[in-house]
Amino acid sequence: MMTKWFLGYSNWKTISLLLLLVIFSCAENKKMESYPYQKDFQEYLKAIGAEIVTDEVILLPLDSCSLCVDQVLADLEYTKKVISVILSGNQVSNERLEKVKKLVKNENLKIHTDEGSKSKSYDLNAFSPILINTSKDNFSYVSISPQNSAAYLLE
């Protein structure tokens, strides 16, 4: 009975519709908003001597929200995307530093460090990990949480 029901509705049109729905829902999940701190961000990059050659940059304050940081570090370990990662933070546990060291071998990650925690003197709205898209004239960004990290960093 179930097979019949499934066969009856699994025509190409239905699959296309479902695919569209899936793509639409993914696009909704990956919505980014305009980044109002673009100017400060560019000044910050100059201050830490980071030249960005990728479309996406993740600002990763290692001493912020533990769950968010740990999830981002876990996803960055496996990502195939080419992303710049800017690490900052004053008090970072050894356990977390070990996870960071693992990322260095990933050639697709362009890692920069903000050694003097200069990020705190700029308006970046990055009190937990954020992903900034710099591919267009007007940058966009999103806060990365344990719930959306995989969608932005792995897919």
């Binding site: 109002p36 308006d123 709205n125 009190f127």
Partner: peptide, 8 residues
């Protein structure tokens, strides 16, 4: 306001 504005 966003969190940056609040922190300032």
């Amino acid at each position: 306001s966003d969190f940056q504005q609040f922190v300032n």
